[in-house]
């Protein structure tokens, strides 16, 4: 055995027994990744987006807040979408440091959770939102809002209502995207517009809607949302211009309005 071969064998042996971390390849072919080893897309939490928005400047958050909503509650599909949308609204209220509005939103979340049968899951979260908003502890309120969203979705999955859990996520994404486009539109920058580069997330939501049972897919509101997502898709799958930001804002705005009213 020559010297270099001895060194190679020794290195491999030492690496094998010591748990030596191998350097990862600089490039992998994702197209060859077996589908069975590919997990579902992770839906980011609203706070991940708002965390970046914090760094982009100081928009007029108060101006982004909607009037108090939840006047109309329809079927479970609508309530699920509203739940997500209201939680996203909570993040806007936190940005605006509006204690009263955050507390109202905490109560709305509880009411909607009650209507959908998962009240007990979020009770402590909503109490905490109200208390922490009163203390002006905005970081903690954000955590509770994120937690409420996760708890509600997990409770729905436990109740074999995964479809509704997807709608909760989608409701949050729609309101979050409406706000994001509104903020970016008012002060366009490529960095801000870059935040909308979420084609796989959009595709994920489209696939979730397409995979719903026909009774849900045929629901007027769900059908409207599906149509809206189809309209957004080409806008997000290309370079995002001020024009496309404006259009995405209009489409998401219409969808959020439909979620709030009787579709």
């Amino acid at each position: 055995m020559n010297k270099s071969r001895v060194v190679y064998v020794t290195t491999v042996f030492v690496a094998a027994i010591s748990g030596f971390a191998e350097a990862p390849p600089n490039h992998i072919d994702l197209s060859k990744f077996p589908a069975t080893q590919l997990d579902d897309v992770v839906v980011p939490l609203p706070s991940e987006v708002f965390n970046v928005l914090d760094k982009l400047g100081t928009p007029n958050w108060q101006g982004e807040l909607r009037e108090p909503i939840i006047k109309n509650r329809g079927e479970r599909t609508q309530i699920a979408l509203q739940l997500g949308s209201v939680v996203a609204e909570g993040f806007v209220a936190v940005e605006a440091a509006d204690k009263g509005r955050v507390q109202e939103i905490g109560r709305d979340v509880l009411e909607l959770a009650r209507a959908i049968g998962v009240e007990s899951t979020v009770l402590s979260r909503t109490n905490s939102i109200i208390t922490k908003a009163d203390a002006g502890n905005w970081v903690a309120v954000r955590r509770e809002l994120d937690g409420a969203l996760t708890d509600v979705k997990n409770a729905m999955i436990e109740l074999k209502d995964a479809q509704l859990a997807h709608l909760v996520s989608l409701g949050g994404w729609l309101r979050g995207t409406e706000v994001l486009t509104s903020v970016v539109q008012k002060s366009y920058s490529p960095d801000g517009a870059d935040l909308l580069n979420q084609p796989d997330l959009l595709k994920y939501f489209q696939e979730r809607l397409a995979g719903m049972p026909s009774r849900m897919r045929n629901n007027l509101l769900v059908a409207k949302i599906q149509k809206g997502l189809d309209e957004i898709s080409p806008l997000i799958n290309q370079r995002i211009t001020p024009g496309s930001v404006k259009r995405i804002n209009e489409i998401t705005g219409q969808m959020v309005k439909a979620i709030d009213s009787r579709a």
Partner: peptide, 9 residues
């Protein structure tokens, strides 16, 4: 493989 949307910033 876990696909995830990450945000610049």
């Amino acid at each position: 493989a876990i696909p995830h949307t990450l945000f610049r910033g």
